[in-house]
Amino acid sequence: MRRLSSLCAMSQEKNDSPASPPDWSGLAAKPAFQALLKRKSRFIVAASVFFIVYYFALPVLVGWFPDLMKKEIVGKVNIAYLFALSQFFMAWAVAFVYVKKAAQWDKAAEAVLEK
């Protein structure tokens, strides 16, 4: 971590004197960086598609299948309320998985900059 921040500090100084900026395209072309990008975008696309489908299922089901949603399943509590409530836990769960994954990506990004 310290090496990363000192590296960043160095590049910061270099940015101020445009003579020797970091080798951006060299870094971008590294196989390790390309692999990181691929892993990252695969997860972000999958997670985004999942949460968007899950979220919009609520207004679709409530709007066009109200009778199904009115079914009471836990005491007086119906599917409509439970599904709406589940959205909060879905959002927290996706955020939790993302943070776990992002910690791995942080390490991979550090490795790309170190070499």
Partner: peptide
């Protein structure tokens, strides 16, 4: 390429 490296590594 520069923006991508910067956005994903913080360099």
């Amino acid at each position: 390429a520069e923006l991508t490296v910067r956005a994903h590594t913080g360099l």
